[in-house]
Amino acid sequence: MIGVYEVLPAGLAAQVEALEAAAWPGAGAGHDPALSPRTVVLWDGAGQGAVAACLTLLRKEIRLGGGTYRAAGLSAVVTRPELRGRGLGGRLVTAAREVLAADPEVDVALFSCDRELTPFYEAAGFERLPGTVLLGGTPADPLPSDRPGFDKAVLAAFFTPDPASTRAVFTSTRIPLYPGLTDRLW
């Protein structure tokens, strides 16, 4: 069972926080409220007991190529270690893409991932954007996805009336994402 939450109930929030802390020790808890975070949760089994996997959807407007796009990104995608390899992460990411595709307030889903995870996200319906770099952080303290030693790929899904034209704007370019210092590179 999958649920989408703007505000997590306390017990669920504690489980999500524990999963994120185990995956990224010292990364800090939570997401920047300015990015309108929504958490997507997949439960272990049919009930709403233990969280099997979760991720957070973040949003902001991006100005690029003379246009303004309502972007959403995947952040903090994690599956409980003992449940990995069962397809749960793929189900979660596919469901998140469907949530974004159905949202009339989202033009593009856009995020970076470790390059070796590209096939995982492509199987969930995202496409790699060759030559594209996300500029995270802030303009004063940028975090580019092509920073030396930072082997990232940029993936996207386009939900505009003319996805091919939008894809062309986002391909082989440096995108000023600048989500801030909390979610430096979603």
Rank of each mutant, 00 (worst) to 15 (best):
G49V: 06
P142E: 04
L8F: 08
G125R: 06
G89M: 10
L83D: 04
Y121A: 02
S145K: 11
S36A: 15
R70Y: 11
W186G: 11
Y121H: 07
T171K: 10
L57Q: 06
Y5C: 02
L185A: 10
L100F: 04
G3I: 00
A101K: 12
V169M: 07
L129H: 04
G49P: 13
A109F: 05
G65H: 01
A153P: 01
V99K: 08
L100R: 06
P119Q: 15
A156M: 09
A71P: 01
L155P: 00
V51H: 01
S145H: 11
G3W: 03
A109R: 09
A124F: 04
A46P: 02
A22L: 09
E82L: 01
G131T: 02
W24F: 12
L135V: 12
L57P: 06
T160Y: 01
V93C: 10
G149E: 02
Y69E: 03
P33K: 10
G3S: 10
F111K: 09
I2H: 15
V4E: 00
V154H: 11
A52K: 02
A95P: 11
Y5D: 01
L135F: 15
L57S: 04
D141N: 13
L35E: 09
I62W: 03
L12R: 02
G11M: 07
D32N: 14
G136F: 01
T138P: 13
G28P: 07
D183Q: 08
G136A: 00
D146C: 08
S36R: 15
V99D: 10
G30S: 14
R115D: 05
L57A: 09
A96E: 03
D183P: 05
G125M: 07
R70E: 07
L88D: 05
P176R: 12
L143Y: 13
R38M: 06
W43T: 10
R59Y: 13
D146H: 13
L100E: 09
F126L: 08
L177C: 04
A164R: 14
D103Y: 04
G89T: 09
T171W: 08
G67W: 06
T160V: 00
A34T: 14
V93L: 10
R59W: 13
G11S: 07
T171F: 07
G66R: 00
F159P: 03
